[in-house]
Deep mutational scan, measured.
Amino acid sequence: MSIQHFRVALIPFFAAFCLPVFAHPETLVKVKDAEDQLGARVGYIELDLNSGKILESFRPEERFPMMSTFKVLLCGAVLSRVDAGQEQLGRRIHYSQNDLVEYSPVTEKHLTDGMTVRELCSAAITMSDNTAANLLLTTIGGPKELTAFLHNMGDHVTRLDRWEPELNEAIPNDERDTTMPAAMATTLRKLLTGELLTLASRQQLIDWMEADKVAGPLLRSALPAGWFIADKSGAGERGSRGIIAALGPDGKPSRIVVIYTTGSQATMDERNRQIAEIGASLIKHW
């Protein structure tokens, strides 16, 4: 067993022997301040990774656009098919120029040779490549099948209805392509620590998230040296922004954090800054 596999296998073990965790309302004060600064709703939840206990939450059962955070769930569904012998990570998928959609920095470079399922998941999570996500959605049967996968996990809230990039439209009061912070946090925890996926697939999923290259201005910008984070960000229309993450000190994750916002007129930089400040408060009061 590799060191990384050992780390993920012992996530519940280490967490069980940690000192009790206590909620700190100071972080919620910052979440509410972010709402004021952005002029928009902000949803927040913080779960203990081992027990699933909610440590703090704000608007945990209000719907927010998922945006690209759905790509972690998508690759979880792909990995479940791999575990069941219905898919192979090494299978190569070929596609054409007509398949390319807006923001496809990886797939646009491989029109000639195609990409493997493993490479597509890596591109979808680490670079948020939209064509990679659409190609992977095709392998599982489309958005409705991802929703069905989530329902089978016990998540009857999260739903995907459309493809990239239309799913980022974020129309107010439109339930399409949305989740709730509580539902997303619980589902992410199941994917990373539950028995739904094999140990190898859980490790692969967290490795992809740990290698995320496009979430630097968010929670990662607030992390002290030595902290662990595996995350996936999302951005959408109407001032929408979000991030889902597993993080913790001492090089291992111990909490799940989900943050979503929508309806702001603020710039992307300002949305990023507010999420980073929430992260800084979380870490300060850990």
Rank of each mutant, 00 (worst) to 15 (best):
M180A: 14
G248S: 03
D174F: 03
S80K: 14
L10Q: 06
M180D: 11
Q274D: 04
I93L: 12
E164K: 01
A170E: 06
D155E: 05
L188W: 04
G248N: 03
N50A: 12
G39Q: 11
L100H: 04
A246K: 03
D99N: 10
L10K: 05
L28G: 08
M184W: 01
D269H: 12
L282C: 11
L167N: 07
G154R: 07
R7P: 10
D33H: 15
R81W: 06
Q203A: 12
A183I: 09
R271F: 04
V31M: 08
D250H: 14
P181Q: 00
P65C: 04
T267D: 14
I275E: 01
N173F: 13
E166F: 13
V101L: 08
M184T: 03
P20G: 06
E166H: 10
M127P: 01
L196I: 15
A16R: 04
L111P: 07
T138I: 11
A200S: 14
G236F: 01
L196T: 15
L146G: 03
I206P: 01
N173T: 14
K144Q: 14
V106E: 14
Q88T: 13
A200K: 13
A123C: 08
F64C: 02
R273Y: 12
T107R: 01
F13C: 10
E169Q: 12
L73G: 06
L199T: 10
Y44F: 11
M67N: 12
Y44M: 09
T107F: 02
F149L: 09
S201N: 12
R176P: 04
H24Q: 11
Q37Y: 15
T193N: 15
T267I: 09
L136K: 00
D177H: 01
L197W: 03
G226I: 03
P143I: 05
S104N: 05
I206E: 09
L160I: 13
I256P: 00
G142Q: 04
F70D: 01
I3F: 11
R238D: 07
I54H: 12
V21I: 08
T138P: 06
A222R: 15
R159T: 10
R238H: 14
G154W: 04
H5R: 08
L219V: 10
L137K: 01
K232Y: 00
G141S: 07
I275C: 05
G248M: 01
G239M: 02
S122M: 15
G52P: 04
P143S: 06
R238P: 09
